[in-house]
Design a protein around this nucleic acid. Structure first.
Lengths: 151, 151
DNA sequence: AAGTAAATAGTAATGAGAACTATTATTATA
DNA sequence: TATAATAATAGTTCTCATTACTATTTACTT
């Protein structure tokens, strides 16, 4: 019988201006930009930065818990420099994501853990509906109908 | 000035064995299969069905509220024939999604609506952690580290 | 200052899902 | 029941977010 020892090699992370600029952008925005939005913004400072670098660093920063990835809903990931658990609202018309500041119910996790036997680390909660802007300009129904005619 | 009238044409949906088979599969499974998993299963009954048909019908069934799409987390959508709002648990190791039967807190929507001014229609809540199976076989940490060595 | 290893830019590959099109199947109607 | 109208299908191509790959550059170590 072989003994298996798991060794975690710490990979020495080097400081780069690209990663610092990306983190800075996330820290200075209240919106929750997509990777592409971060890319567009960081290009103003570092014009030759590549999209791969943005993705790689967003992933790295997420792994290091310096930022948080919002993978709830939609196809595009969104990134948030606010790393403590909190809730969001997503507009089903324009897709924008906003913070919702109500206390996180950690008791719920314990309750459901006991009931189900799952080892629950946290929960993600996203409110859905229509933001103020989209409520105003809601002339065309947001239900995704395509059978519209102009007469 | 032109008058614009928006006309919604009701598209008459035709019954097909493909769509019925897809709905049947979703009704007879407690798991929450991805489009591809549905495709694999329906192929046992209709071998020449195309993946596009599966996607199109899943979308159609979702629009008609006959099934529900779980777009929370991950890249792949999952489908559920249980259409009334309920909560889920997602295992961060194997990716499986399970139902969580605790009452849905609709009061929360009203409370947050009033506080924020968003028109909130519902919320999605997903517990995250590790399922029973993955807790047992958790020898290798699920944190996504790749720097492991066997000695 | 030189050596090393990690990070980068740029490009190609992947994979979920949507779009397109000629053909087939379903429903309405004569 | 046969026929006409049109929705749905199979099969293929396309899109778009994200990842992988690779030669070159940059940051840290000694």
């Amino acid at each position: 019988m072989r003994t298996i020892i798991i060794v975690e090699e710490m990979n020495k992370i080097k400081k780069t201006k690209q990663r610092e600029a990306i983190l800075e952008i996330l820290k200075n925005t209240k919106s929750h930009p997509t990777a592409d939005e971060v890319y567009q913004k960081v290009r103003q400072k570092i014009p030759r930065i590549s999209k791969g670098t943005v993705y790689r660093n967003l992933k790295l920063l997420t792994e290091n818990k310096e930022v948080m990835k919002i993978d709830t809903g939609g196809t595009e990931g969104r990134y948030d420099a606010r790393v403590e658990n909190h809730y969001h609202f997503r507009c089903e018309s324009c897709g924008k994501v906003f913070d919702v500041d109500v206390p996180v119910d950690t008791e719920l996790d314990k309750k459901v853990s006991q009931k189900t036997g799952f080892n629950i680390t946290h929960h993600v909660l996203e409110f859905r509906g229509f933001c103020s802007d989209c409520q105003k300009k809601a002339i065309i129904s947001p239900s995704g109908d395509k059978n519209k005619e102009e007469v």
